[in-house]
Structures are given as C-alpha cells and as structure tokens.
Design a protein around this nucleic acid. Sequence first.
DNA 1: TATTAGTCAATAAA
DNA 2: TTTATTGACTAATA
Length: 670
Amino acid sequence: MDLCVFTAVSPTSADVETMVAMRNRDVQRLEQEVRRLQHLLQEVQERTANHVALLQQQLANKSQQIERLQAKLQSQQDYDKIKTELRTLRELTQTTDDVSVFSSPSDIDNDAVIQTEVKTPEFQDIGKGELLNESSVISGSPSSSSSSSSSLQSLMKEETESGDECEFDTTRLALEVKEALQRLNVGQRVFGHYVLGLSQGTVSDILARPKPWSKLTSRGREPFLRMKHFLSDEHSIRTLRAIQDRLRGIFVPCVRPPDASSDDAIRKILNRSRLEKLDDDDDDEGSRSQRDGDSSDGAIRNILQQAKHEMQTQTQTQTSATNDTFDAPVHQEEEDYGTLDPSAQSPTDFVQSIIQKIKCELDEDTDPSVSPSSSSHSFETPSADPHQRTQVFSRSEENMETQERPRSCPINISSSSELQSLDLDTFSITQRVKETLTINSIGQRVFGEEVLGLTQSSVSELLSHPKPWTKLSLKGKENFIRMHLWLQDPQKIQKLNVMKKMDQRARLKRALIGSDCDSHRTLDAGGQGFCDGWGRCDVMKKPRVILSPQERETLIAAYQTEPYPSPYTIDRLAAQLGLQTSTVSNWFYNHRSRIRRDGFSEPMQTRTFQNPATSRPLSASLVRIKQEPSDGETEEDAYLKREQHDHVSVGVQSIMRVKTEKTEDLSDLR
DNA sequence: TATTAGTCAATAAA
DNA sequence: TTTATTGACTAATA
C-alpha cells in the first residue's frame, strides 16, 4: 500500500529539478537577506560608534565645564574670609568713624541688590580708607562749593608735582586696564559706571583708542588718573570684582535705578572723594542727560501704555461721554502756557492730548467732506474767524468734536494693536511746523525750547532731516508727537508769541548783566581759564576741531573705500591727517549716521517739494497704520511698501497722484 | 563691546 | 539774528 502510494506520488526527474531550482532560489534569497542584515548591522554599529563618540565628547566638555566652575569656585573661596577680616576691621574703626559712605538711608533702600553687598563691611571700610586718603590730597574742604575745575586743577597740579605721574603712557595704561578687566571678568559697563563715572561706550572708546597724555585735556586725563589709581589699589580691584560678581545676572542694563545714589556711593568708594567732587560741576549736565535718557523712553512707554488704557476706557464710554461732556464747564485758560512746556505736562495729560488729537485727526482723514488740510490751515491762520475758533476751543476738545460732527471712527484705533502700530507722517509734520513757524515769524530756538525742550540745532536737524516714523526710537517719536499736538493747538501761536517776548526780555536782561560781569572776568593764574569776580573759575574749553576741506576729502575717500574702518585704518588716517584718533572715529560715526539720515530724508523731501499737483504739502494724512519692514527688507523696499500701502489707505486724490509718481520713480530706479 | 541714535555747543552760513 | 552744519558726547542697542 505504502509502496503504491510512494510510487503514485514519487516525483519525476523533472519535478526534482524544479524543486532543486526552488531550493536554490530560496538559498539565494536567504543569502541576500543575510547580506542585507549584515549591512544593516554594520550601519547600526557605525551609528552607535558615532553616537558613543559624540556622547564621549559631550562628557568631556561637561567635565571641562565642571572643572572651570570648580576653579572659579576655588578662586572665590576667599570671599568669606575677606568679609570676616573686614568686619573685624570695621568693628575696630566703628567707634571712631561714624561717617557713612551713603548720603542717606533712602539711598540704600533704592537698590536692594547693592544694599545687600554694599552694607557689608568690606565696602564701607574700603570707602572709609579711601575717603581718609582723599582728605590729605584734596586742597580745600570737601564740602566747599569750589567748582569742579578748580578741584581738577589742584588734582592735576598734585599729579604733575608727583613727577613720575605727569606723563602717563595712556596706551599701556589702557592695555593694563583691559587685561585687568578681562582677568577679573569685569565688564566695561560696570568698570565705567563705578570707577570712571563714564558710560560703557566712552570706556570702550577710551580703552580702544587712548589719546596720548600730552593731547588730553584736564578732563580727558581724569579717567586715566582714575584707572591708574584703580590698578594700583587692591581694595578697589577686589571690591569691583565683588560688585561685578554680585551684579552679574541681577544688574539690569540700560536702566538706571530711579535713585542712583547707591551707585554713586559705590563709585565714591572705588574712587576717591576728591574725584567725585569733580563731578559736581557736571551734575547739571549729567542730570540732564539722565533725564533725557531715562525719563524719555520711560515716559514714552508710559504714554503709550496709558494711551492704550485710556483709549480702551474711552471707547467703552464714548457714546455717553459725547453727550455728558457737552455741558461740561470751561476749564481751559487762555494763558495756560504750562501745557506747552514738555516737562510741565503730566504723562496723563499728554496721553489725553494724544488720544484727542489723534482721534480728531483720524476723523478728518477719513471724512471726505472735510478737506484734509482745512483744519490745519485754520489753525495756522488765525484770521479765519479767530473769535469763533477761540470760542470753540475754549471748550474742551471733546466738546468741540461732538459739536461739530458725530464721533464716527472708521479706523478703530482703540484696539491695542492699532495703537501700537500708530504711525505719524513725520515729513508732513515737519513741513507744517516749518510753514507755521515761518508764517508767524517764530524762531526754531523759541519753538525748540518751549515746545520740544530741545536746542535750536536739534530743532533744525529734526525739521530739515526728519526720519520716517518707523525708523525712530521711542525717544525720537516723542518729538514728533509733541509737534503733532502742537500743530493741533489753536493757541499755539499766541502762546509762543508770549514766550518769544518773555525770552527777548530775558535775553536783554542777560546781555546787560553779562556785559557787567565781563568786566569782572579775568584770566586765572595759570592762564588756563577765566575767573569771575566772585572767584569762580572755568577751565578753558577745548577748541572745536574744524576739519579742513582736504582733511574732509581724505576722510570721505576713506569712507568710500571702507565705511567701517579698522582701528588700524583709523590710526593711520589720524596720523596721516594729524588728528586725534577719536576725531577720526567720531567722524566716521557721524558720517555714517548722516549718510543714513540723508538717505531717509532726501526722497521724502523730493516728494514734498517737487509736487506740482498740489499747492499744499502732504499734510493730509498725518496718521497712518504702520507697516514695519520685514526682516531682510531694504530701506527702499520698506519705503515702497509703505508708499503702496498709502495708496489704499488714504483717500486723498492728490496725495495718491504724487505717491503714484513717486512709486513709479522708485520702481524705475530699482 | 562696537556701533547707533539722539543730542548739544560751537561755529559757519544765510 | 536765525538757521544749518558738524565734532563730540552719552545712553541705548545689536
């Protein structure tokens, strides 16, 4: 049976061959599979090896980092020891010396960080020691009201008399300071702030391009004297390092504490009090710069924040307010000149003004029934029924607006994003300001001092070379906001005329007093300055550098080949022209800045002045929705983009015509 | 930390 | 006398 079955299913030779062939194929497939797996394995092994290598590398790096940190920790281990020693010293001297390095406890309270550190004995003791040393050096009482210049002169005299110090190698000194700062891991900002009383930028410049001692003025020598003292004083070095260590990560750059007395106290510790006295005369200027620098951005930020808030609340109550305020009592006084004074206006008032004026502006711009220029012109020409104007504006602005037209605001500026994207047409504003000033014979000086709080030269620069709104910093925008508000003020001319008269009287008075005082002015003993009849002396100011046309040509040629010259090139140019390196580097900074400025203003001025289509400048749309240039966008791109945007957002035909021409021109140029 | 933005005072030009 | 220019400075920024 089995045999029969076997016989029946027994394969033929052909079948066998087929089976063999199949087996062979299987074997081949398996071989391929094995090869593939082997290859895969190899890849995995390679990847693993790479990964392991990477991890090993990372491990090595981490180990190095740990070592560095351990070394750093090690180097700072003496902190507690020094602290303890100084505490002991303080206890020893405490009974005899009650002089505090701080002017008042409130000074300390203003900076908790500084307070923690500075209140530790090490600082106080160092400060006391130095203050004591000072007293032996300073000529005259530290509390005397002698001017900085006389103190400086006495200091210089001391330094000169000391012989070996009269000729500093400023380059070497700067190099040593650089190395020391690097070694101590102290930044230029901290060093400048606490040791020299200078800004970081100035420190950078001094260290990078130290002037020869012989070419330095008394004032210019002061930082080098301080640097020398710093390098030779272990206490100062240690203290500064401690400060830097503590401040790192806590100190907020660019924002000076509201009360800088704590910083000043530390600087007093690090410097000598005699040098600190030298700053007294600069306090006015310093505080002015302080005010400019600190309050301005902060104020504008506040303004914008408050504006945002006010806009939101006002929008909510807009409808009811229009009726409620209509019968409000009259508050505006004709002689309220205080509102013109930039410093006299509270941020809230300023914000309120911005909101009112901008809303008004938006209404005008979007209302085709109102000529875009009519309102501004009516402000500029009091002859256009001044009584009626005065009467209208004697009410609040809001009353006026509600009386004249309903508050319809097609562009909803009350949203925060739109508020932030607020854009003023700076070119139009400056054009209108210039016209108004010219028509009313008001000088830039009076306008600058009363409206913007700037000098005549700054006003001239602002009006002649306005930057586009988008290119302005917060501080820069403030001026244009003020100008914009001033343009809206119906009393602006009267107010400025009164100020002009007052100013003329004051100048006349000063001139009379001045001529009287001049008779008292005599050259001081050293011939370095003038002393008045009351014994106050001024150091003769450094004469202004006037570059000759040849020097300027050389610099321009250098700029064209290398707009950002290396320190070597600057040195070479300075040597070639016989100028100070700082003069050359300043020239390059200023030239770049002014090239940029002219790049901004020239196309716009062309647009304004070469507009044959309209007799008026482009004052119609002072407020736009800002379009920020995106990353990588060129100035021209941004300019074109904004121009194109204006086409759709501004409903003034003449403007569109001019802008179309301008866009086409620019397209051709591109 | 190098560079920029904003500003000033001195000076030139109008 | 007013306006424009420019070298120099500080604070802010990249």
